[in-house]
Amino acid sequence: MKKFLVSGIATALFAISASSMAADFVAGKDYKVLANPGTVEVPGKIEVREFFWYGCPHCFILEPHMQTWLKKMPKDVNFVRTPAAMNPVWEQNARGYYVSEALGVRKRTHLPLFHAINEGNQQIFDQASQAKFFVNYGVPEAKFNSMYNSFAITSKVAQAKKLAQQYQLSGVPAVVVNGKYVVQGQDATVTDVVSYLVEKERKAK
């Protein structure tokens, strides 16, 4: 009986602690409030948009936490990945990302590319190296190259640039919640803050 009582108290204290942690998230410290909110892709859903670059070690560290969060993502949330194209090198990877998405291989290549660059020390940053990487996933080099500088891919890259500017991003990783809040960091706290903000937006509806 005593054992169950202690266990129950511990569980209650944990719940109170978790609630207190969520209540402690404050604007200007744990997240940034955007002066000019952006629009969301799917009206009626709470948007969570992750900006990243494959060569960013901080993005690589954050990725497992994002993957865990995605497995329990609420149904009223729309998650969008956006490859940051904030300089010429990053833009090369952004183009590769959108080509992989257009060809339907993005789900199979996203994590392997992260690992190849950050753990395998492979320099997969330009068009040629990316084309060779995607060959391993059934994408012919000619097909990759034909789409790399296409109008459709260029338009998506331009949109990614525009969003990064609109959200006043200075670096990555950055997670934008419902076009209103920016959360930055590389540990599990990021997803805790994101969940807090999602709930905040849900209550505001």
Rank of each mutant, 00 (worst) to 15 (best):
Y137G: 02
G44S: 09
V6T: 07
P43G: 10
L169R: 09
V182E: 11
G185K: 07
F14S: 13
Q159T: 11
N118Y: 01
L197R: 04
F125A: 01
V77Q: 10
Q168T: 12
H115Q: 15
V40T: 15
P64D: 03
W90L: 04
Q122Y: 02
G8D: 08
R95A: 09
A158N: 11
T191Y: 02
F14P: 03
S150Y: 05
M147Q: 13
L13F: 14
M66L: 14
F52K: 00
T191A: 02
H110I: 09
V89S: 14
A164P: 04
G96D: 02
M86Q: 13
R95I: 09
S155F: 11
I9W: 06
Q166I: 00
L197T: 08
Q127H: 05
W90Y: 09
A131H: 03
F114D: 06
K203P: 01
K162C: 00
G179Y: 05
V77L: 12
R49G: 10
Y148D: 08
H58S: 13
Y137T: 04
N178M: 05
F60H: 13
R49P: 10
Q92G: 13
L197E: 01
L113D: 12
A12W: 02
S7V: 09
K45D: 03
R202H: 06
K75W: 00
F52D: 06
Y148H: 08
K205L: 14
V172K: 03
Y54R: 03
Q166E: 13
K132Q: 08
F125V: 07
A174F: 08
H58L: 03
A160G: 00
T11S: 14
D30S: 15
Y148Q: 06
V135T: 13
A15D: 04
F14A: 15
R95W: 11
A10Q: 05
P57W: 08
Q159V: 10
S146M: 07
K45N: 07
G44N: 08
L163I: 09
R81S: 07
